[in-house]
């Protein structure tokens, strides 16, 4: 990002190629709609481009990038009325994503035998509470470490760890039903 801030267009190309897939899937899994994911994705990268002159490396680029995407998601949910609690407090449990309920009637076990693996996994992920889904996607798609996810979400490391553990357990259960 520093190279791009100095005017190196190829540096941005490399950054984009490295992070575009994970970030897109992160947005798509959260919002569940390709058109909205496209819009949020473009909006997030536009913010990255505009922030090039003021970019200060305080964390890894991935952490900074997914923070932008996370904030765009919050703004989107706030605009669509899905999130009522958007103010994060010092308590780890105050993450606005915690207020987002899982999709009702999308229990992974109910559809395990009839769908392919990938579909079940997506549905299982969609059935997760938003905080668990957020932690899992940041860990799986963004490649962020626990500490980075903790900083990004405003939660503690142990909280992030437990969220991921819960998410993995549910997804593993989905896979177990299929096999």
């Amino acid at each position: 990002m520093l190279a791009y801030a100095a005017g190196d267009a190829a540096a941005f190309d490399a950054l984009y190629a490295r992070h575009k897939g994970g970030m897109y899937r992160y947005l798509l899994r959260h919002c569940g709609h390709a058109g909205v994911a496209d819009e949020l994705f473009q909006d997030a990268w536009t913010s990255v481009i505009r922030a090039r002159s003021s970019y200060v490396p305080s964390a890894t680029f991935a952490t900074w990038l997914y923070r932008i995407a996370h904030n765009r998601l919050i703004d989107h949910w706030r605009a669509t009325g899905r999130v009522e609690l958007v103010t994060a407090g010092p308590n780890d449990d105050d993450d606005p994503l915690d207020a987002i309920p899982g999709a009702s009637g999308d229990e992974p076990e109910a559809r395990a035998a009839a769908h392919e693996l990938s579909t079940r996994l997506r549905e299982a992920l969609a059935a997760l509470p938003a905080a668990q889904r957020e932690a899992f996607l940041l860990h799986q798609e963004g490649g962020l470490e626990l500490s980075e996810i903790a900083v990004l979400t405003g939660a503690g490391v142990e909280t992030v760890k437990s969220r991921i553990r819960y998410a993995l357990a549910k997804l593993r259960a989905t896979l177990g039903d299929l096999q």
């Binding site: 897939g21 390709a34 994705f41 693996l117 990938s118 579909t119 996994l121 993995l168 997804l171 593993r172």
Partner: peptide
């Protein structure tokens, strides 16, 4: 789970 997820999630912009 990670391998199954990688196989199931491959969308690109």
């Amino acid at each position: 789970v990670a391998a199954a997820w990688r196989a199931a999630s491959s969308e690109e912009p």
